[in-house]
Amino acid sequence: MRTGLALLCAVLALASLALGPVDLAALWARDPELARNLFIELRLPRTGLALLIGAGLGASGAAAQALFRNPLASPDVLGPSSGAALGAVLAGYFLGAGVIGMAIGGLAGAGLSLLLLLALAGRGAGATRLVLAGVAVSMLLGVAINLALSLAPSPFALYDLMFWLMGSLNDRSLPQLALAAPLILIGIVLLLRAAPALDTLALGEEVAQSLGVGLSAVQARVVLAIALATGAGVAVAGSIGFIGLIVPHLVRPFVRHRPGAAIAPSALAGAALLSAADIAVRLLPAALDLRLGVLTALIGAPFFLCLIMGRR
């Protein structure tokens, strides 16, 4: 399955590099230097960010569902996505921080939201309590974002914030890719290294502890990794929801429902899904101006409903 997903990612990446408002092949024949600049400065960062952010969200979703042993756990439901958005908004707009400041704000917001979640749930909390605490944290952060919006310095700044929160990869730059890529990759690597421990945790906390897997250590590692993978993505692209929720469910049947084993294919499937969504946004009529985060939500919300209906 991994090879198939990797091939799908490669095909979508090529499509993403080739598609855009300008015919790159025709431009190459006319002005190779301009075509090269356009390719490197615009197409490459957009494609790279779609793959990386999608991979980070997919892996984070799979790891969250494994850690909390709940199929509804994901960066959107538990709070790190909202935390990252709030952190980036506060850093960017109210502290006047630059691109790096927004990234730090995003990482801090995602990490703090997860720490708050663990603190609220308490030591040795069951999966249900953790998810309930996550929903509470997510709602709290949603309110805090609304407060930040209502305290925007001016109505025009408010529009900026609202559009940013809708998520987009439009016209992203190489410096933004260079900033987000290492952080997301470190997050994904940390999650992949935690996969065996998460598989063991699926057997139950007592069994896992008897096998030498400490819950606190796994929690700390996964929280840090999700903060890195989610926070860096949100800081560069805004809020992009539902990828982390959908993707683990799509891949889990292919890994015999082993939660840890779902992390790597979830990363690949997340990369493919976000790349496909970003291509779809570009193919839609320009007048629609549909934002990437809105499109992923349009796909994800019905999926979420189906998931709940299927479990009745």
Binding site: L38, G101, A157, D171
Partner: peptide, 29 residues
């Protein structure tokens, strides 16, 4: 789009600068 702007640049580009000191999506653009 930035792509169109690069390929079909206007002879004169007037950049409307608003709230330079505060970073946002439009500022990053």
């Amino acid at each position: 789009s930035l792509e169109r702007l690069l390929v079909q640049p206007p002879p004169i580009l007037i950049r409307n600068v608003y709230r330079r000191g505060q970073l946002s999506g439009p500022q990053a653009w």
